[in-house]
């Protein structure tokens, strides 16, 4: 469980303009949740996730990890980073070893584990992201975009984190690649019970998977709730440069024309079922 208490973060100052990137953010991230963190560029979402593993230190406020303040003296940041795994947007920023397997070993090696444990963890992590032994000796630079991303995620999973934060894991991938990565992450969450925070621009991508959406805007939490609650504010979301999934607009348009359909529909499957209920189909 991660708890943020009144986090503020400002930077700049001096000759440049001071920027208030996070304003009094308080949040709780209980174990086992699958959270979508949404916001447009500059909304503070990237800054926020870097607070969660101590890469950026809050100007004021406190962060508790399992009840312990991460800013307390003697708190091990390295320990925190192995427990709160953060995978950045571009895998190119972290892949550096000559082959996939060695690269995934980097994390556990930094934790000072013995060689056998390191290898075991790397193997397990690669299995978790769906890369079998045939990839072990391949150079990470020769992989496709989606595969690179898997290796990057495995590199963090090998540290056995309790929380996995993914910063736009689907950027630049084609639709199929995007679905594959998200399905893999959902599986991880389901089978391992790992807490997942998925950072994204796209409501459509996350609506299908997450059980909670946090919307960031101007450094503050604008909305926080289950997807259908958040999407009810689709008009406000638009003023924040975001949009609800297209299906929300379809449902709203149908309702506006008097078609009897419920408001809280967030996925194509739900919409299909609801429409068929009204007009009937073969099945």
């Amino acid at each position: 469980m991660i708890e943020l208490k009144n986090i503020n973060y400002t930077y700049g100052g001096g000759t440049t303009q001071q920027i208030h990137a996070l304003k009094d953010v308080s949040l709780q991230i209980p174990d086992g949740q699958f959270i979508g963190l949404i916001g447009h560029t500059g909304s503070g979402k990237s800054t926020l996730i870097q607070h969660l593993n101590g890469l950026v230190k809050a100007t004021s406020g406190d962060i508790l990890y399992n009840g312990q303040s991460i800013y307390a003296e003697g708190f091990s940041m390295k320990g925190l980073r192995s427990k709160v795994g953060l995978v950045f947007q571009y895998p190119e920023h972290q892949l550096f070893e000559t082959d996939v397997f060695t690269d995934v070993c980097f994390g556990p090696k930094n934790l000072g584990l013995d060689a056998e444990e390191i290898r075991a963890r790397a193997r397990e992590a690669l299995d978790l992201v769906g890369l079998d032994e045939s990839y072990d000796k391949v150079s990470p630079f020769e992989l496709s975009g989606g595969q690179k991303r898997r290796v990057a995620i495995a590199g963090v999973l090998a540290m056995k984190p309790d929380v996995l934060i993914l910063d736009e894991p689907t950027a630049g991938l084609d639709p199929k690649g995007r679905d594959e990565i998200l399905d893999q992450v959902a599986k991880l969450h389901r089978e391992r019970g790992i807490t997942v925070v998925l950072v994204s621009h796209s409501m459509e991508d996350v609506a299908k998977y997450v059980d909670r959406i946090i919307v960031m805007n101007h450094g503050q939490v604008a909305f926080d709730g289950v997807p259908k609650e958040v999407f009810r504010h689709y008009q406000e979301l638009e003023t924040m440069g975001l949009a609800a999934p297209q299906v929300t607009y379809i449902v709203q348009a149908l309702r506006a024309k008097g078609f009897p359909i419920g408001e809280d529909i967030t996925t194509v499957e739900e919409a299909k079922a609801a429409i068929l209920q009204v007009v009937g189909g073969k099945r």
């Binding site: 459509e204 999934p245 297209q246 299906v247 607009y249 379809i250 348009a253 149908l254 024309k257 078609f259 194509v268 919409a271 299909k272 429409i275 068929l276 007009v279 189909g281 073969k282 099945r283």
Partner: peptide, 30 residues
């Protein structure tokens, strides 16, 4: 999503036209 939904509904037996691209077209047909 609108094309996907129309396609799914068509598979389920609704008489929708192929390749619906806009919400307006979809709403009109439904």
């Amino acid at each position: 999503q609108v094309t996907e939904l129309a396609w799914e509904l068509k598979k389920a037996g609704l008489p929708l036209t192929d390749g619906i691209l806009t919400i307006d077209d979809f709403v009109d047909e439904i």
